[in-house]
């Protein structure tokens, strides 16, 4: 972590300690959530998209302002078939400028169609500087201190192959390349990864915050730098940072929440201007739809075809 980010974290931590959690709703005015609204929206997400669950996390890291069994939301083993980085290369070679395939031309999605401009406005946001990773280095292998079974480790492992007792010749075991998940026929494919995507409540920004834990095809932990390959490259170098997860051990990639309130406010304004009454319990659906522009290839569930407004249930 760079120093400015450290300082900011220390500042944020102090503020979080001395201020109480938000209790008055400012959803319409600021696009933020109170703690009880976060629980409400989380309950709704879990009931509509059952791949999401509430979890308790590390007891030692429990936040007292959240119910013990509802500390954060998580969906595990979400497939990510393509690297966002490689998709963008396709776009660039095709002369495209917009990163996210915006299949529905709804105005509200367009408000955040190019979030990079917004981020560039905030030059002095501390966490933005933390990832000066060149585009090159996100695509090639970074020497691996963190992750699991990297390339160098494999010969080591095979040295320990113990054929004497473990040749299991069992005709009923599927021997083929069962681990190779189904992948689209495409030259730009790297490998199918899976993600655990979690959502925590950020007390300082009063918004949800998304965390990514990536695994390679053998379900070995990816070091967070590799996770950046699955982040829209504009965000990988700006809004996605690698930090300590508030409830889980280890370093995880996270979409920095500094702009979440403002973006959500814009989405809400667009809804209102279209005569739709935004409802706070649907906050996380709107939020996850917006997050999909940052991690376009991680196929987590946020039920695309739900009703945005109160016009129907």
């Amino acid at each position: 972590m760079v120093l400015s980010q450290k300082l900011h974290e220390a500042f944020k931590g102090t503020v979080e300690r001395i201020t109480g959690p938000r209790t008055v709703s400012a959803f319409r005015e600021k696009g933020v959530l109170s703690v009880s609204e976060f629980i409400l929206a989380g309950d709704n997400l879990v009931s509509k998209c059952p791949t999401w669950s509430w979890e308790a996390g590390e007891p030692s890291r429990r936040k007292s302002y959240l119910p013990p069994e509802k500390q954060f939301l998580i969906t595990r083993n979400v497939p990510c078939l393509r690297r966002a980085a490689s998709i963008e290369e396709e776009y660039e070679s095709a002369g495209g400028e917009i990163l996210v395939d915006n299949e529905d031309n709804d105005g509200w999605l367009a408000t955040h169609g190019k979030p990079k401009d917004k981020c560039e406005e905030d030059d002095n946001l501390p966490s933005m500087e933390s990832l000066e990773i060149s585009k090159k280095s996100t695509v090639v292998s970074i020497s691996n201190h963190f992750g699991g079974e990297d390339e160098e480790d494999i010969p080591d492992m095979e040295g320990y192959d113990e054929p004497e007792c473990l040749i299991e010749t069992d005709p009923a075991t599927l021997q083929s390349t069962y681990l190779v998940a189904h992948e689209p026929d495409d030259d730009n494919i790297l490998r199918t990864r899976t993600y655990d995507v979690s959502i925590t409540y950020d007390k300082y920004y009063q918004t949800p915050r998304v965390w990514l834990t990536g695994y390679d095809e053998s379900r070995m932990l990816l070091q967070p730098e590799h996770v950046l390959e699955d982040v829209s490259q504009d965000h990988a170098r700006k809004t996605v940072t690698i930090e300590d997860h508030p409830h889980l051990p280890g370093k995880h990639a996270s979409i920095h929440p500094c702009r979440h309130g403002a973006v959500m406010k814009k989405i809400i304004d667009v809804l209102v201007s279209r005569g739709v009454e935004p409802e706070v319990y649907k906050y996380l659906f709107l939020f996850l739809k917006f997050v999909a522009s940052v991690i376009p290839t991680i196929e987590y569930d946020y039920t695309m075809d739900f009703d945005l407004g109160s016009s129907s249930s």
Partner: peptide
């Protein structure tokens, strides 16, 4: 009985992970 986990090359080997960084 059978069931020792295979790696993605179909071999029965142990795995390892280094977590010094965290």
């Amino acid at each position: 009985a059978v069931g020792w986990e295979l790696n993605n090359k179909g071999r029965t080997v142990s795995r390892s992970i280094i977590l010094a960084k965290s």
